[in-house]
Amino acid sequence: MGHRALLAYRRDETDRADEPAETESAPDRASDDGPTYDLHRSHWGAADFALADRIRADSPFAADTAFAVDPDPVATGVTLADAVANYVDFLHHEAFYRVETDYETTPFHVLWFGLDADSEAVDRSETVGNGALVEARAVDDTDADFLRGWFRGTKAVVGEMVDRGALAPDEATDCLAARVCAWAGDREVFVTE
């Protein structure tokens, strides 16, 4: 099955200067002037956030490890907001990494807002564009296990609220987003809109 990760490598601003406003790989590119990224996949990169300290200038795709990143990009020239909304599969990606131009790497937990297993009233939830990324501070099992357990419990309660009619499914998503942001505190969080 693997431990799939999606990685966003920040593009050097000189790479952007020669790029047209819209490319075939990023048709819905955001119009803001924020930094853009190239997206890459790793089949095993989410295992214990293994890539957090393995991506370096001398090995930008961690090719010398079992967690290697595919050097062929999935998409190029996308903003982080676009990546979160249109490329992260919150059910299938277990980790997300932001890689800066100096190869400083920030790992993120991937949390899917789908309530398929938590609510009898919800038949199917989108997997892309339906969740949150939460910065992983301590890249260890304790932090990840606590967050996963807390989030499973939170989803169970929200799913029960949907089944009892206290929340509509779209309100449940807003509730999950608010709870994740509150839990995260000063950690960086990206929530889909």
Rank of each mutant, 00 (worst) to 15 (best):
Gly2Phe: 12
Leu7Lys: 09
Ala8Ile: 04
Arg10Cys: 00
Arg10His: 08
Glu13His: 13
Asp15Ile: 02
Asp15Trp: 07
Asp15Val: 02
Ala21Gly: 10
Ser25Asp: 15
Ala26Ser: 15
Ser31Asn: 12
Tyr37Ser: 04
Leu39His: 02
Trp44Phe: 11
Ala46Thr: 04
Asp48Glu: 15
Phe49Leu: 12
Ala50Gln: 03
Ala50Ser: 11
Leu51Ala: 02
Leu51His: 01
Ala52Met: 05
Arg54Asp: 00
Asp58His: 03
Asp58Ala: 01
Ser59Pro: 05
Pro60Tyr: 01
Pro60Asn: 08
Phe61Cys: 00
Ala62Cys: 03
Ala75Pro: 03
Thr76Lys: 10
Thr76His: 11
Val78Ala: 01
Asp82Glu: 15
Asp82Cys: 07
Asp82Ser: 14
Asn86Leu: 11
Val88Asp: 08
Leu91Thr: 07
Glu94Val: 02
Val99Phe: 00
Glu100Asn: 11
Thr101Gln: 06
Glu104Cys: 02
Thr105His: 00
His109Gly: 04
Val110Met: 08
Ala117Cys: 08
Glu120Lys: 15
Asp123Gln: 07
Arg124Lys: 14
Ser125Thr: 09
Val128Arg: 13
Asn130Gln: 12
Val134Asp: 01
Ala138Lys: 11
Ala138Arg: 13
Trp150Glu: 13
Phe151Ile: 11
Val158Leu: 10
Gly159Val: 06
Glu160Ser: 15
Gly165Cys: 06
Ala168Gly: 15
Glu171Phe: 09
Asp174Trp: 13
Val180Thr: 10
Cys181Val: 14
Val189Ala: 06
Val189Asn: 07
Phe190Val: 11
